[in-house]
Computed example of a mutant assay.
Amino acid sequence: MRSSRDPVHDIRHAERVADFAEKIGRELNLDRKRLQALILAAWWHDVGRTVTRKPSLIFMVFLDDLISALMLWRETIRIGLFGSVTGMATRLIFCHSVGTGTFLTRLLLRPKTRLLLDALMDADKLDMLSTERLDKLLGLASRSTIYHFGYRILSWYNFSTVYFDVKTAAARRHLEKILVEFVTWLYSPEIKAWHIEQFGIVWSRRMHGRVLSVIQRFHIRMTFDPTI
């Protein structure tokens, strides 16, 4: 991951997702092997991003998990590391993929193991609101037409009510804390001004209306000016 050319899916992203995954896994009282598999999958789930020369917002969304799973599988064979932990981690990454994940989950995961996939997906989702990651994404959106468009679409989707329906109770507890940090960042004068400059006042007001609905849903106490 240190060789990733995608600053949004870099080693720090993998580190944060692995940290969230471990916290969620421990709160779910996973046994040692399942917890190890979950953490390993979190570290490797975006390794496929290292194969591209430039960040890809379109193709890698659908391919990165499949490539990452194959890379983990190849590496375990190369070093002769076999067993239930690496096998389970590889299957989790395959099933984490966009587009084919639902089919592969039915094919590769037993019902009891699907809790690990829920934990992995929740951990990845929590990092979408990392202010460290968002600062990097703003830089990309300022320099790239594709990322500018992608940021606009992803922002609209991420603040739908469906997005915040994480699957584990452990993730919901962490989500509330992360939302407070995110909302404080979003309503800072510099970030508000950036959104208005990039997307206009009308879009910004609509977007912040969605954010306010999330604030109300999670009963976040506002210590900032929520107006645009």
Rank of each mutant, 00 (worst) to 15 (best):
L120K: 05
F159N: 09
H9S: 11
V47R: 15
K177W: 08
H148F: 12
M121W: 06
G87P: 02
K167M: 05
M71E: 06
S155R: 09
A18M: 01
F224H: 06
I191K: 12
R173D: 15
L72Q: 04
K112L: 08
G209V: 02
Y147V: 03
D127P: 00
L30Y: 01
R26D: 01
W194R: 14
I201T: 11
D127V: 01
W43L: 11
I77F: 13
Y163L: 04
K23D: 01
R173K: 15
I24G: 00
G139A: 06
G101A: 06
E197K: 13
D64C: 03
H9M: 07
D65R: 01
L30W: 00
V183F: 11
L126Y: 03
N158Q: 15
I178C: 04
I196C: 07
S142Y: 08
D6H: 15
S204C: 12
S142D: 13
L154M: 14
L212C: 08
R143E: 13
F218N: 07
M222Y: 00
L30K: 00
V85I: 09
H219D: 13
G87E: 10
G87R: 06
R74D: 15
R26A: 02
R205A: 13
S213L: 09
W203H: 07
S68D: 02
R217K: 15
L126F: 00
Q216W: 08
G83N: 04
R91K: 15
L66F: 02
F20M: 00
T168W: 05
P55W: 02
T100C: 14
L117S: 06
L109E: 10
M88F: 04
K33Q: 09
A42F: 02
L81V: 12
S97V: 01
A141E: 05
G99T: 09
L138G: 12
V202M: 07
K54C: 10
I178H: 07
I228Y: 15
G83F: 00
M60N: 10
G209E: 04
R74Q: 15
I39D: 06
T223V: 05
L154H: 10
I11C: 11
K33W: 02
G101L: 04
V166H: 09
D122H: 05
M88W: 03
F59Y: 12
F149T: 14
R114W: 07
T102K: 14
R114E: 10
L126D: 04
S142T: 10
R172Q: 15
P111W: 09
M60D: 12
D65P: 00
M71D: 02
E176Y: 05
A89P: 00
F164T: 07
L72A: 05
F218H: 08
L30D: 02
L38Y: 02
D135F: 06
R173M: 11
H174I: 15
M128S: 12
L134G: 04
R74V: 09
L38N: 05
L115Y: 04
F94K: 05
R110A: 13
D65A: 04
I201D: 12
H148Y: 13
A69N: 02
S3L: 13
I191G: 10
L129Y: 06
K125Q: 09
R210H: 11
I228M: 12
P7D: 15
V8N: 11
V162C: 13
H148W: 14
L134H: 10
R2H: 14
V211F: 05
T50G: 07
G83D: 04
L104C: 08
